[in-house]
């Protein structure tokens, strides 16, 4: 139906053209237009974050309802979320409509400092162990390209820590290894990263054009 598919496509095209073209308009109205539109998106985005949170909770509700393997653990998602939302709304007596004074450390802050930070920081630090294990077991110079990768990795790893300067100092060249790491980063790494960046940028532009002309419609979701 036209109001379900055509109007959204027209909106995308019109707003996309305006978003692109207003950058070339040398009048203050163009800046005002940008300010208004971006403010709109800041407001819409707030609702979007709630949608994301709801989707996550919904996923765990489904898991519990269908009694999927490990469903009982999903209850802890609700315990954690409910705990934080309750202390956040209570706000140590200041309520959801006021801010606690800058000197106060609320239970909400406590939950962040002593539950969220340790969990979040630790869960990612576990990767250090996995990485070491994987590197020992699989990182091999099987051919010239793999050897290049390996040598570059070793030189950068060594050149970026103080130990390299101590080892360099034994030979009277304290800055030798850091310099090698710098050279790798500033020449071959820079060149390859720029190549990738240019490739990705061209890809992003073609994807944007596909969206504007209605070829790419995945943002519309499923259904008619």
């Amino acid at each position: 139906m036209w109001y379900k598919r055509t109007i959204p496509l027209v909106i995308v095209f019109v707003i996309g053209v305006l978003a692109f073209a207003h950058n070339y308009v040398p009048y203050p109205e163009a800046d005002d237009f940008r300010e208004h539109m971006t403010k709109w998106f800041m407001i819409i985005g707030g609702f979007g974050l709630f949608l994301g949170a709801y989707s996550l909770l919904h996923m765990h509700v489904s898991r519990i309802r269908r009694m999927q393997p490990g469903w009982a653990y999903s209850a802890f998602v609700f315990i954690g979320a409910a705990g934080m939302i309750i202390v956040g709304l209570w706000n140590d007596g200041y309520g959801p409509l006021e801010s606690a004074p800058s000197t106060a450390k609320t239970w909400f802050d406590w939950g962040f400092d002593y539950v969220q930070i340790p969990c979040s920081a630790t869960i990612f630090s576990i990767l250090a162990f996995f990485m070491a294990s994987a590197a020992f077991r699989t990182f091999r110079a099987r051919n010239v390209n793999a050897a290049l990768l390996l040598v570059a990795a070793l030189l950068v790893m060594f050149g970026r820590v103080p130990a390299s300067e101590s080892v360099g100092a034994w030979f009277g060249q304290q800055g030798f290894f850091p310099k090698i790491a710098d050279l790798i980063m500033e020449f071959p790494n820079l060149a390859a990263t720029r190549g990738i960046l240019l490739g990705m940028s061209l890809g992003a532009i073609s994807q944007s054009l596909r969206i504007l002309f209605g070829i790419e419609r995945s943002y519309m979701g499923v259904g008619d």
Binding site: Y73, F76, G83, C119, S120
Partner: peptide, 30 residues
């Protein structure tokens, strides 16, 4: 581990929801 992992997801979700209210919807809408 599984309990802690799920608890963390919940706490992060609750934190995000409250911050979105306090730092986005309250000042921009309410």
């Amino acid at each position: 581990f599984k309990i802690a992992e799920n608890l963390y997801v919940g706490v992060a979700l609750g934190y995000g929801a409250i911050i979105t209210w306090r730092q986005s919807l309250r000042p921009e809408v309410y």
